[in-house]
């Protein structure tokens, strides 16, 4: 990959090169005991809950828990909504990333900050904001309601919107970085061959940033799948139309803890799958 522009791979390439001229490796000194202790505590703190989840999983009942009433529905709804959120994020986010990476326009940094904000905003605040904007009396919602008779809150559409709101920034930021790192002369080459900008984008730019796009989409999807706060605030918790997996887990914890554990395990496995898919990017072989 010469132009994919994914930092991870580039580092990998560097590692392939002969290590001429590098300073000799320093002998690993003895680690300070205090550090080792605290680091071990950190690992334990992160790992024990997950181990607990796996150990407490009622394996024998798992098959029946996974098909218990409401569970397959929540699972299906979660997958559908999160994939729809990724699709919306890609459709709107890729052009946005392109503009941020390629066009110098006034207020670009402001736009970038605005786009990044949902990443740090408490999701429940995002949900409140969505409600105030798209609710029946909201800034935009009242007009949608009056003119188009469209009511967004507490619908599946609202679930997708809530998920896209919190997840899109991950895709935008990752794709923008990919576009910046890519060798733009490939686009020049395409233009000299007679390709109009759309053809160039479709046949050269997108394939060259495919690794970044894949990583961005995976991050976006993982975030959308786990979305809780904004969803419950803006879309509510209606089984079958807005109750996604995280909501179902939370609810099941009170009535049917075993089912909650089973559902959590499914989410853990999905998260691990994302991690494995992105391992090249985050853990370049060093």
């Amino acid at each position: 990959m010469t132009a994919g522009g994914i930092p991870g791979r580039e580092r990998e390439h560097e590692a392939d090169r002969p290590r001429v001229g590098r300073p000799p490796k320093r002998a690993v000194g003895r680690a300070p005991a205090g550090f080792v202790l605290l680091a071990a505590l950190a690992v334990a703190f992160l790992a024990i809950p997950l181990i607990g989840l796996v150990l407490r999983t009622p394996w024998r009942r798992l098959p029946s828990d996974l098909v218990a009433p409401g569970v397959p529905t929540a699972l299906r709804l979660s997958l559908e909504c999160s994939l729809a959120a990724v699709a919306v994020s890609a459709l709107l986010g890729i052009p946005l990333a392109w503009l941020l990476a390629r066009v110098k326009f006034p207020g670009r940094n402001l736009v970038r900050a605005l786009v990044t904000l949902p990443m740090v905003l408490p999701p429940v605040v995002g949900g409140v904001a969505l409600l105030l904007a798209f609710g029946r009396r909201g800034l935009v919602g009242q007009w949608l309601d009056r003119w188009l008779h469209v009511t967004l809150p507490f619908s599946t559409t609202a679930t997708v919107m809530a998920e896209a709101f919190v997840a899109m920034p991950f895709l935008v930021i990752t794709v923008e970085a990919g576009l910046r790192a890519m060798d733009r002369r490939y686009e020049d080459a395409a233009a000299t061959l007679g390709a109009v900008r759309w053809t160039t984008f479709r046949r050269v730019t997108l394939p060259l940033i495919a690794p970044s796009l894949g990583a961005g989409a995976a991050l976006c999807w993982a975030r959308a799948l786990g979305e809780f706060g904004a969803t419950i605030t803006f879309a509510g918790n209606l089984p079958g139309s807005t109750q996604t997996m995280p909501l179902a887990v939370y609810l099941a914890l009170e009535t049917n803890p075993e089912a909650a554990i089973a559902l959590s395990l499914v989410m853990l496995i999905l998260s691990l799958a994302v991690l494995v898919a992105l391992r090249d990017r985050w853990f370049p072989t060093s």
């Binding site: 990959m1 233009a191 000299t192 007679g194 109009v196 050269v204 495919a210």
Partner: peptide, 21 residues
């Protein structure tokens, strides 16, 4: 006339062959 409409062919310095094709 934009690049894509010029009857001009270019061989770039490091060729810039599309790596994904």
């Amino acid at each position: 006339v934009p690049t894509e409409h010029r009857p001009v062919g270019v061989v770039f310095q490091d060729y810039l062959l599309f790596p994904h094709l």
